[in-house]
Design a protein around this nucleic acid. Structure first.
Length: 957
RNA sequence: GGGCCCGUAGCUCAGUUGGUUAGAGCGCACGCCUGAUAAGCGUGAGGUCAGUGGUUCAACUCCACUCGGGCCCA
């Protein structure tokens, strides 16, 4: 700063200025202060108050999907719950009636598995095993319920810490009696439409525990088995010869390979790959068929000496040929299958639909029996050859090999070590076994114009469901098209029982009316579906009268019924929530919005859609919004074991919920979301920018009384104020629209840019001088304060859905709230009046940019540091009218220089960007106001020796 | 292996139906202010639009393939 322009004696004018004052802290200290906000809201019972206040508002029906009641919340929950909360809060702010009932998925294998593991580890399992079946089931269920309760409490607490505004006092739980009742009512409706049936399906089966096992209950260990190459004799020699285009005088065989000889009695097909080449070979005097590529490997393994390829053909030519089973009296076909590989075996795959998933699917497709001659205890039933009946399958393995060897069907055998699934508890090997299961038939006609569920689902998602993002529709369609029948049953204890009974004649008793009767019983029973394990059939069916049931079997004797113990797939329970929650609690149906991760296209979305369509004929949702998954900073999947999972609790503690939510609002959530603690540093920075802008507004309102300074008493707003109010109005409309269309990222962008650019860098910088230096009561200053007050109030409301704590803190500071009941969250958005403002503002802002650059250049060329030591002369050419419609002082404030004025235009000069010619010049020789530090034309020496501008001289009076 | 999707500055993202020199914020560099001060302001440098090939007068944009990543199946 130049010495020559400094006043000789320094008077401190600082006390005469209206400098900002506020108790609103610069540092948010969210980790400490957010819990206090939560307490205040809790005490005033805010959730209920808001609902009460919005009771007559237009409803917006939102339905929360239930997370699984297991473990702590993770990054995915953070994203999901915050997005939901932003939706709900923004709808409430718009005056909508929008309840948010949170829910939990309580039943199911993961909990049961954890509980069982605990029992095994603690040794309690021994005691459980001494109980009767139903006592044991009840004991397990009690443990599972305790486990679920504990985690629901934990998660609810963590979700509340995210500042979500939901009815945590009345959540829905899939394990409560009322919920269970409503699920069974949905099921009854499906039964009534004949959509439910029983059929065989291959499952992992533990012989040791005589139970079906889920994938999660398998452990893989190496197991030594006998692997065998078996010749299956062709039925029609000529047909085979024709397929290979040769003549044959010997009946050829199909050579298969298997490591489970005990499944051979259930063989019903041989699968080949249509695109592979197969060879007709003379090996050691026999003619057999092997995949060409595997021929050498197989004959080498068997140490065959004489190998001669007679012909080759495509797999597709073999399809349809038939063969004779080596020791069962039947013929079976060769079929095509894609899963046939050339890695092991012969390229011809032994297929037993009762003993394998691929085999099972092939069996369904080819219309084969799902034949399973193995009983639950691992012994053969009486449908197999006599020498095998009653034998244990593991023992039978070697007998079958010997039998094949003797009958000449065994080409080769050797021991083979492979990874094989074992029961996680007993560590014994499991088998695949076809068992009776319950299904929902997706291709059966429903009561809705006889269309199938699949067809209804395809049609309705095409026309009646809105997808965000759009590609969700394709994804859903693809999944629906390939949707198999829905297997509803599981063989577990922790779940809702499928209320079926076995009759004396071994037939199954389950009708729509009987299901409804049990539903009613569960609903009124304190323990809900626990009744299934503690009550006799007469009690369970106390609301059932066979005389009123057209489907009741003739010979029904309720007293002699035996309950069956399959439970529902948990997806059927959560998939009935539209009934168990939304319809039962009268919250609105169909629902406006389901919002979940994109994995739920197959999960909750689809499995809610199917039952709802069956029962109501319409989709349960109008809009499906999906978000991506949270991945690590390199875009890789997060996992606890991978060590790259985000610690949500730590992030909340270090950054606070408002920062986390501000981060969530910045995401393009439709794609995968990268997250790392470092990302929250950035969100923190940007949060602080917004916070500081709010603080600046608040700090300049310390002497402003919004009630007294009513609009009527104030003069027309200054051009700057009119402009910022106009911008604020536009912002409000854009933000409101973006909230409505779930474009939170745009909301974030708009709010950030407005705070950072429009307010902080432009408006606030420009009005500082008048706020600080104008007389306290000057019209110009009051007009500015009015704008700032209005905007701060508006911003607190616009920000409330994203940062509930900070918005409330701002709102309460602005309104000097001592009353704990005062909160932004009971407010609705105020529509700002359409403020007229000079329509030339865009040109002026362009001019500002140009002049800022000019000032920057002048600073170096004139060797000036402080822009207040610079003045700008304009030559107005094409845009005379535009510039002259503004006051030069306002322009100077916008650019941050002491003064801007005109000079006569010189026609020789080329106009620059905005049609102006400008010249920045050094003002350091001009007097500088001691109070406002500007070098305006009216700054002169005053009688008391001070150098002041007129405005400051006035303000001092 | 199949279905759906993603890949633009160091980072997070814009980029209309193909059409001038691909935009913004953060970060970074340099500077200012010291009356928003553990703040605030200005200026500037950063890009082979994942890769290859094709369609076109013209491709970040349309098509095919490849690579990397995610979800759901098998």
């Amino acid at each position: 700063m130049s010495e020559s322009t400094q006043p000789t004696e320094k008077v401190n004018y600082k006390p005469t200025l209206n400098l900002p004052k506020t108790s609103f802290p610069m540092r948010a200290n969210l980790a400490q202060n957010e819990p206090q906000s939560m307490k205040r809201w809790d005490k005033q019972r805010l959730y209920g108050l808001v609902n009460e206040a919005r009771r007559d508002g237009q409803p917006f029906v939102f339905h929360d999907g239930p997370p699984y009641a297991n473990g702590s919340i993770h990054a995915g929950h953070l994203l999901n719950k915050v997005l939901k909360d932003i939706v709900v809060r923004s709808r409430l702010m718009a005056g909508k009636n929008c309840p948010y009932v949170p829910g939990w998925d309580c039943h199911g294998l993961p909990i049961e598995h954890r509980v069982m593991t605990g029992l095994v580890e603690s040794g309690k399992i021994a005691k459980f095993n001494t109980l009767t079946d139903n006592q044991r089931r009840m004991a397990i269920r009690r443990e599972c319920r305790k486990y679920a309760d504990k985690h629901i409490k934990l998660q609810a607490q963590q979700m509340q810490r995210l500042l979500t505004h939901a009815d945590y006092d009345n959540p829905y739980l899939t394990m409560t009696p009322d919920y269970e009742q409503a699920v069974l009512e949905v099921f009854a409706d499906l039964v009534q439409q004949d959509l439910v049936f029983r059929a065989l399906k291959s499952v992992h089966w533990s012989i040791e525990n005589q139970t079906a096992l889920a994938d999660a209950e398998l452990e893989y260990y190496d197991k030594t088995d006998i692997s065998v190459y078996v010749d299956f004799e062709a039925v029609d020699r000529d047909a085979v010869a024709q397929a290979f285009g040769v003549e044959l005088d010997q009946t050829p065989t199909f050579m298969i390979w298997t490591t489970t000889p005990w499944t051979l009695p259930a063989n019903l097909a041989i699968a080949v790959h249509e695109k592979f080449r197969y060879a007709l070979v003379l090996v050691d005097g026999n003619v057999t068929i092997i995949a060409s590529e595997l021929l050498n490997k197989v004959t080498a393994a068997a140490k065959s000496e004489a190998v001669e390829v007679l012909a080759e053909t495509d797999g597709s030519k073999l399809v349809g040929l038939r063969y004779r089973h080596p020791f069962c009296d039947r013929e079976s076909p060769v079929v095509a299958a894609d899963y046939v590989t050339l890695e092991d075996g012969t390229g011809l795959v032994h297929t037993a639909p009762g003993h394998g998933v691929d085999d099972y699917n092939t069996g369904l497709r080819e219309g084969l029996d799902i034949y399973c001659p193995v009983l639950g205890d691992g012994s053969y039933d009486d449908t197999v050859p006599e020498w095998l009946v009653g034998k244990n399958i593991w023992k039978a393995n070697s007998e079958i090999v010997e039998h094949l060897r003797r009958s000449g069907h065994l080409f080769h055998d050797h021991e083979f070590v492979h990874s094989y699934p074992h029961d996680w508890r007993g560590k014994s090997p499991v088998i695949f076994r076809a068992t009776d299961q319950w299904f929902v038939g997706v291709e059966r006609p429903t009561r809705w114009d006889k269309q199938s569920l699949q067809q209804l689902a395809l049609d309705k998602t095409e026309t009646e469901v809105n997808f965000i993002p759009q590609w969700g529709r394709n994804r859903m369609r693809g999944m629906l098209e390939s949707r198999p029948d829905w297997c509803l049953s599981r063989q577990r204890a922790w779940g809702l029982p499928i209320p079926a009974f076995a009759m004396e004649n071994d037939e199954v008793f389950l009708t729509a009316a009987s299901v409804r009767a049990v539903a009613k019983r569960f609903g009124e029973h304190e323990g809900g579906s626990d009744a299934w394990f503690t009550e006799a059939p007469e009690e369970l069916l106390r609301h059932y009268n066979p005389a009123d049931d057209p489907d009741a079997p003739d010979n029904l004797d309720v007293a002699r019924l035996k309950p069956m113990y399959d439970i529902f797939d948990v997806w059927f329970e959560s998939g009935s929530s539209w009934n168990a929650v939304m319809r039962q609690r009268d919250l609105g149906y169909p629902v406006d919005l389901y919002l979940e991760g994109s994995d739920q296209h197959r999960g909750w979305f689809q499995l809610s859609l199917l039952p709802a369509l069956a029962v109501t004929g319409q989709p349960p949702f109008r809009t499906l919004l999906t978000h991506g998954f949270v991945v690590d900073k390199d875009g890789r999947k997060m996992s606890k074991s991978g060590g790259n999972a985000l610690d949500v609790e730590a992030v909340l503690k270090d950054y606070g919920a408002d920062v986390c939510r501000w981060w969530v609002s910045s995401l393009s959530y439709e794609n995968d979301v990268k997250a790392d603690t470092g990302f929250f540093d950035l969100a923190s920075e940007s949060y602080r920018k917004v916070r500081n802008t709010l603080r600046f507004l608040l700090s300049n309102l310390f002497d402003y009384d919004a009630n007294q300074s009513d609009a009527a008493q104030l003069p027309a707003p200054n051009a700057l104020d009119a402009w910022i109010m106009h911008e604020a109005g536009r912002l409000q409309q854009q933000v409101a629209a973006a909230y409505t269309t779930y474009e939170f990222r745009r909301v974030h962008q708009l709010l950030y840019d407005f705070c950072n650019d429009t307010l902080s860098a432009t408006y606030c910088a420009a009005v500082k001088d008048r706020l600080y230096c104008d007389a306290e009561d000057a019209d110009r200053r009051r007009s500015t304060q009015r704008a700032m007050f209005t905007i701060a109030d508006m911003l607190s409301r616009l920000l409330a859905p994203i940062m509930p704590h900070t918005a409330d803190e701002t709102f309460r500071a602005l309104h000097n709230a001592d009353d704990p009941m005062q909160t932004v969250h009971l407010q609705t958005q105020v529509e700002l009046p359409d403020w007229p403002c000079n329509e030339r503002w865009p040109s002026i802002l362009e001019l500002r940019d140009v002049l800022l650059k000019a000032v920057e250049m002048a600073k170096s060329s004139l060797d000036v540091d402080n822009p207040l030591d610079i003045g700008v002369k304009l030559q107005l050419l094409s845009n005379e009218e535009v510039v002259r419609s503004f006051e030069y002082q306002d322009l100077a404030d916008l650019v941050g220089v002491s003064r801007i004025d005109e000079e006569p235009s010189n026609t020789d000069v080329e106009p620059s960007v905005s049609g102006v010619v400008f010249r920045a010049y050094d003002l350091r020789d001009e007097p500088r106001c001691d109070r406002c530090w500007r070098r305006t034309v009216d700054t002169t020496a005053r009688s008391d020796g001070a150098t002041l501008c007129d405005r400051c001289a006035d303000a001092m009076k």
